[in-house]
């Protein structure tokens, strides 16, 4: 019995190690390529030991304006996320506390997030062309609100419902208005939820490709669009592509672990907590 159990554990660990390696090795390989010089990056069979260099990173910032793309991504992702948080949290509070428009309004928030982006991006592109918002940050921020906003409302409803009404009632007996109790009591208590929704939206925006591909041009290109064109322009400049990939992934991985506690809830639209 004991031997059987031990064998089971060895088998389980072996499988988990193989799975972990298959996740880790591709990423490590790209990191390795990003710090290899031009000659080494192209070498097959590969050279295993070499002096690392930051040339590739220097190149994507000097030859291509990757700092601009990075900034575009940062500004657009943050702006859409913040606007969604600002107006989405108010609506979520209203739906949670007063059941405004229940259940149609609440359910429309769930279904809106599921819309296929290709169905939205075509009309949005046509409209942006008419109102001259194509290749503008405002345009892309508006487009991102189409999924940030319903997501924020939907996910925050459950956070607000978790806050006991009595807390607010106590504050209102002490002389707070409804709005003051919202600002002073509800928001601070729901802060972890607000933060996780905001960060999650930021990650979605940072990763978004189809809207960005169609709605941005020379002035507002975001990182995913920029690196996807890096491949075609250059044939295969392996080092530069790797460096750009590392730069794009890094913030996301860091943020993912910041909101780790809420990820399950974020990813399953609150259905699994």
């Amino acid at each position: 019995m004991k031997i059987k159990k031990r064998l089971g554990l060895i088998l389980a660990n072996t499988i988990l190690i193989i799975a972990s390696l298959s996740v880790l090795l591709p990423i490590l390989w790209v990191i390795r390529t990003s710090i290899a010089n031009r000659l080494i990056a192209y070498k097959i069979p590969p050279v295993w030991i070499f002096t690392p260099t930051l040339d590739n990173f220097r190149m994507i910032f000097e030859t291509y304006p990757f700092q601009d793309y990075f900034l575009n991504s940062l500004i657009i992702s943050t702006a859409a996320s913040l606007v969604a948080l600002l107006i989405g949290s108010l609506a979520a509070y209203s739906i949670a506390r007063f059941r405004t428009g229940d259940p149609a309004l609440r359910l429309s928030m769930l279904s809106t997030q599921m819309l296929p982006p290709i169905a939205l991006v075509i009309p949005i592109f046509l409209i942006m062309n008419v109102i001259k918002l194509w290749d503008s940050m405002t345009g892309l921020v508006l487009a991102y609100l189409s999924f940030n906003l319903p997501y924020t409302v939907w996910i925050l409803i459950s956070f607000f419902q978790g806050i006991p009404v009595e807390m607010e009632e106590a504050a209102m007996i002490d002389g707070c208005s409804r709005f003051q109790s919202l600002i002073r009591i509800v928001f601070p208590v729901a802060l972890p939820g607000l933060l996780s929704a905001g960060v999650y939206n930021f990650i979605l925006n940072w990763n978004e490709f189809l809207f960005a591909l169609i709605l941005t041009g020379r002035n507002t290109r975001t990182l995913p669009v920029a690196i996807s064109s890096l491949w075609t322009q250059q044939g295969v400049n392996i080092g530069a592509v790797s460096a750009a990939t590392v730069i794009t992934i890094l913030p996301v991985i860091l943020l993912t672990f910041v909101i780790q506690k809420f990820l399950v809830r974020n990813l399953t639209f609150g259905s699994v907590k």
């Binding site: 190690i17 880790l24 990423i27 390529t33 990763n207 490709f209 491949w231 990939t245």
Partner: peptide, 24 residues
């Protein structure tokens, strides 16, 4: 440790995932 590693790809931008595999 396993969990930490296994969860890394989850929120990576799909474009970068595609690029990594194109390189490999």
């Amino acid at each position: 440790i396993y969990l930490f590693i296994l969860l890394i790809p989850m929120l990576m931008p799909p474009i970068t995932v595609g690029l990594i595999w194109r390189l490999l």
